[in-house]
């Protein structure tokens, strides 16, 4: 079976598309030994991320089993996850003072 999205670590709440995924398309993501079915709410380009769960605004986004940033708005399961709804928590000189 060829997967269209993969996770790096079982703790992840986002998966990486390894093919272009169309809006409305249901893809399987292998988590440990289980398969999670996700229906994409948007077009996800190759290499970009798809949410595996609802991630409320302000919560951490997890990839590689680690924090890659926080949600800047409520993210729904199946949403496209990128700079429009996630921000970095590090190197934020703009937030100083």
């Amino acid at each position: 079976m060829k997967f269209k999205a993969v996770i790096a670590n079982f703790k992840d709440n986002v998966a990486t598309a390894i093919s272009n995924i169309k809006k409305g398309e249901t893809v399987s993501v292998k988590i440990d030994k289980e398969l999670l079915e996700i229906t994409s709410n948007e077009n996800i380009p190759f290499g970009h991320k798809l949410s595996l769960t609802d991630i409320p605004k302000g919560e951490d986004v997890i990839k590689y089993g680690e924090v890659i940033g926080r949600a800047t708005r409520n993210i729904r399961k199946g949403d496209y996850v990128h700079i429009h709804n996630v921000e970095s928590k590090r190197g934020r000189g703009d937030l100083v003072r």
Partner: peptide, 14 residues
């Protein structure tokens, strides 16, 4: 970013 990397943390972890 165009390649799908969202934050410096994600870049670093990869």
């Amino acid at each position: 970013i165009e390649g799908g990397v969202t934050t410096i943390e994600e870049k670093s972890l990869g």
